[in-house]
Design a protein around this nucleic acid. Structure first.
Lengths: 337, 337
DNA sequence: CTGAAAGCGCTTACAG
DNA sequence: CTGAAAGCGCTTACAG
């Protein structure tokens, strides 16, 4: 059904080794011979079998990318960047979503001998040791999400969350906001979420009257979708605490929060300003349009691949911090109270 | 670095064949022997190499799913269903997005010997022959999107778009709407989009005064995102044609269209009712909440896997049509003109 | 410039 | 119940 390299060799009247050489290292073979081979390849619609190839090269040319979920378009963009760059270098990438199946995925990575994986999500649901286990099996890794992983073992690409949070807080403060809530949905105990730390630092630095009382933490499994944003915002409103601005851990949460605010007759931005993180496209179509701390997600994915690639080819890990950028739209304004 | 089955055999004092037997067909081996092997497996943290295994079994246990883009959450849900079901049966699935790289993906499917692929998108950007080529190489296929593909070669899972469109039109008609626009973004020439046909059939059946003039077609490459919805809606408004309801090819387009309508001071649903397709989660958080023709996307993905699986295991293709369900929310109401 | 041969890590009849 | 051996389709020194 499928032609093998042996069929090609026979048709071209050469050895199988020569076929390989033509395909993998042209120049090593006389042109006239190569032409015969290429002709046979075309005639038989032959494609080399990557599985057999992997057997001898010990490289699968497959990569994995693990995400929390595809429900957040934020990850869709990152995947796009990563995959484009990977395809360029002939890698095939497996998208692995759903933290609930993480162990299975990790097993698969070993078992299927992927060359590298990009763990592109905040890892509050698994132990870093599992990643080291992968490394030990020879798989190269890039992590994201401030894992505080051992940089001698894995590469790390982060967003500058501390800086981003500082910028947001200063922006709001200049607009006159002092009672600024932060709907995190994550927790203070999660060392890798630097946003909470950034927020609390600024609360202190700016001497905001709210202290920690406007910080909303989540609990395991730390879900941060629209429905969560909606619920957390209600919780905040119901608490009766005063606030004039809400920062949300991501745009999805912000969108849910805005719905809750509107339902309670709170006008955005007249009564309360709202800011999200990520810069997903939906925010632009919302009403009001969402102010957000954004970044070039596609580029971020590309960069992650480059780091992984360099680790695979040259060896050696690296660290990179990505700056974010505030996009001001209509969900924020001068404080009117 | 990685233990092989030979290491295990040595440690357990048995042959490599026995190791295989223990792992693949327990019961074939005496318990005491099996125990020794299992112990060695654990001690060495051994995992069988799927690549080598694929070499002999001729099955890669990998599947592909090709989507137009991850930007539409609609596909995220389908992927989830498909992948969950596939994982259950020990398949690993590759998500392939971006029609621009379709040829590369198809090549990869052959080259990497995937066992099957689910083509989950309207195929206006590639030739069906490419799919037949895959089939010829021994790869099983399930298509979606009314490809009109030869059902002897590939399985097909569709949404009942004709029925859905009929239901929508009757729903609107009963609310008093007669000037009903349809923002398709696709084209009449695309035989597989049955929605246009369904729409036009109903325009005729209900004897609507608008005829075909409120149908908005797109052009290659038939993009149907939020921005497209926005532009198409503006185009519709600018045309000066009267309409009291707009059906949109998907929720993304509907969301974009609603933004355009609002910007022009058109109230939803007071002045114009809006309906989308797909039932993505975002619609529920929009203002107004979006009425939509929805379906169980996760289940749809699962069903697609089942069809693929049965084709891979038992052989033989199948056809399945999935019914959709109208979810009425606040973006539609009685016609007030 | 080209080919014979070993090897990658499994599975699977088949013989014992 | 267990093991020896062939085979899956490639690559890669190495010899000629």
């Amino acid at each position: 059904m499928k032609a093998t390299r042996e069929d090609v060799a026979k048709m071209a009247g050469v050895s199988t080794a020569t076929v390989s050489n033509v395909l993998n290292d042209p120049g090593k073979v006389k042109k006239s011979t190569a032409d015969k081979v290429l002709e046979a390849v075309k005639a038989l619609d032959y494609r080399p079998d990557m599985i057999a190839r992997s057997m001898s090269t010990k490289r699968s040319m497959q990569l994995g990318i693990v995400l929390e979920s595809l429900a957040n378009p934020f990850f869709g963009d990152i995947v796009r960047g990563f995959e484009n760059a990977a395809n360029e270098k002939n890698y095939f990438v497996n998208i692995c979503t759903g933290f609930n199946k993480l162990d299975e995925y990790f097993d698969n990575f070993i078992t299927r001998r992927v060359d590298g994986v990009f763990v592109a999500a905040i890892p509050y649901k698994f132990n870093v040791d599992k990643i080291y286990n992968l490394v030990q099996k020879g798989i190269k890794i890039v992590v994201s999400g401030n894992v505080c992983a051992d940089f001698r073992k894995v590469s790390s690409i982060e967003m500058n969350h501390m800086g981003a949070m500082r910028e947001i807080m200063e922006y709001l403060y200049k607009l006159g906001h002092e009672r600024i809530a932060y709907i995190s949905g994550l927790g203070k105990n999660l060392a890798y979420d630097l946003r909470i730390k950034g927020y609390l630092d600024m609360v202190e630095k700016l001497q905001l009257p709210c202290g920690e009382e406007l910080l909303i933490e989540g609990k395991y499994p730390y879900s941060t979708g629209m429905e969560d944003g909606y619920q957390y915002a209600r919780q905040l409103i119901d608490s009766g605490k005063e606030f004039t601005a809400v920062i949300c851990v991501n745009d999805l949460v912000a969108l849910g929060a805005m719905k809750a605010l509107k339902e309670c007759g709170i006008r955005i931005p007249e009564d309360v300003s709202v800011i999200g993180f990520d810069g997903i496209e939906f925010g632009k179509y919302w009403e009001p349009e969402l102010t957000t701390m954004s970044m070039n997600k596609v580029e971020f994915g590309e960069k992650a691949f480059e780091m992984l690639y360099s680790n695979m080819i040259k060896g050696g890990t690296s660290y990179h911090e990505y700056d974010m950028e505030l996009i001001v739209r209509n969900s924020t304004s001068q404080c009117r109270r």
